[in-house]
Amino acid sequence: MAGLCAQRVVAITGAGRGLGRAHALAFAAEGARVVVNDLGVGLDGTGAVTGPAQQVAEEIRARGGEAVAHGGDIATPEGAASLVATALDSFGRLDTLVNNAGFLRDRMLVNLGEDDWDAVVRVHLKGHFLTLRHAAAHWRAEAKAGRTPHARIVNTSSGAGLLGSVGQGNYAAAKAGIIGLTLVAAAELARYGVQVNALAPAARTRMTEHAFAETMAAPAAGEFDAMAPENVSPLVVWLGSAGSAGVTGRVFEAEAGRITVMEGWHPGPSDDTGARRTPAEAGATARRLLAAARSPQPVYGS
């Protein structure tokens, strides 16, 4: 099958539903061979069935593509290692990793239990780290053997990680951490032919459908469905292709027909006296600098 990703092998976590499923189908439509990972858990991360991953893999094969299902827990070293091994055993190579798996356990901070904190940070942040580490180890070995890859990693952050989100302290912290991980990985892995970028998508999935149901009516027949997850996938496919050469360490937002390059932290107004200030002087300087700085974007839900 010809296309932008012809002959590339792509592993996608959390690809049984929502955004991950849309990414898997979009990569396959561009010629990629796809490893469809999904643990098959509920919205809160409980339970596990192999059905969703198998169904997406079968859907890709029914359309003439190549795909295999992987039901391992990518937030464990064994599951992350087996994801890479499945790509190598099934297709002989791995070119792109898309980290997408996640779930929610929303609570206000005063009601947020330690278990709910640990579970969300584990699947989002640790799940990104472990798959990234195992894929990177493979690509480093390839590069050292003289077979430098054109490898790609696309991580999934969130507007909650960029701006915060009321009732989602665990999720927002994990998604902000993913951005930091992306920047470090891009810097460290460039020498091995690996590009690493992150995406903050907005789409209607199991994790967001309640919020969008309250704020946006369903489109009429024939109208553009602005919140369809399929709107996000074209950018993910491009970032995961060889055509994105030279693009690394960047964070994008994607929603409906809009793509935004996020500019991250940049130094703003500054003042240097060359000497130590008193607390009162530091406060006066801080207020003067704040008055000259851009106001931050509001936290979601505030």
Score class of each variant (00 low, 15 high):
residue 15 A to Q: 09
residue 88 L to Q: 08
residue 7 Q to V: 03
residue 177 G to Q: 04
residue 51 G to D: 05
residue 282 A to K: 11
residue 138 H to Q: 14
residue 108 M to D: 00
residue 59 E to H: 05
residue 220 A to G: 15
residue 246 G to P: 07
residue 246 G to F: 01
residue 184 V to W: 04
residue 296 P to T: 03
residue 223 E to S: 14
residue 235 L to V: 10
residue 167 G to E: 02
residue 177 G to N: 03
residue 46 T to L: 05
residue 249 G to T: 02
residue 206 R to A: 14
residue 276 R to T: 11
residue 80 A to T: 10
residue 133 R to D: 04
residue 199 L to E: 02
residue 163 L to I: 09
residue 298 P to C: 01
residue 191 R to S: 04
residue 239 L to E: 00
residue 157 S to R: 01
residue 127 G to L: 10
residue 46 T to I: 05
residue 120 V to T: 06
residue 255 E to C: 07
residue 287 R to H: 12
residue 82 S to A: 15
residue 22 A to S: 13
residue 75 A to G: 07
residue 262 M to I: 05
residue 257 G to C: 09
residue 71 G to C: 08
residue 138 H to L: 14
residue 116 D to F: 06
residue 28 A to F: 05
residue 149 P to K: 00
residue 72 G to T: 05
residue 243 G to H: 11
residue 42 G to K: 11
residue 9 V to P: 09
residue 102 G to T: 00
residue 133 R to G: 10
residue 19 L to Q: 10
residue 243 G to T: 01
residue 62 A to T: 06
residue 12 I to T: 08
residue 86 T to M: 07
residue 37 N to Y: 07
residue 163 L to S: 06
residue 44 D to A: 08
residue 42 G to Q: 13
residue 47 G to A: 04
residue 18 G to R: 03
residue 95 D to W: 06
residue 39 L to I: 14
residue 111 N to H: 13
residue 300 Y to L: 13
residue 258 R to S: 09
residue 291 A to Y: 06
residue 286 A to E: 12
residue 247 V to D: 02
residue 170 N to S: 07
residue 35 V to I: 15
residue 280 A to V: 14
residue 20 G to A: 06
residue 51 G to P: 06
residue 71 G to R: 02
residue 86 T to R: 08
residue 228 A to R: 11
residue 105 R to K: 09
residue 200 A to Y: 02
residue 245 A to V: 10
residue 109 L to C: 10
residue 20 G to T: 11
residue 135 A to S: 13
residue 19 L to H: 07
residue 255 E to H: 13
residue 144 K to W: 11
residue 151 A to T: 01
residue 9 V to S: 08
residue 93 R to Y: 00
residue 130 L to S: 10
residue 134 H to R: 12
residue 207 M to H: 03
residue 164 G to K: 00
residue 25 L to A: 13
residue 110 V to Q: 11
residue 167 G to N: 05
residue 296 P to Q: 04
residue 109 L to I: 15
residue 288 R to D: 13
residue 110 V to I: 13
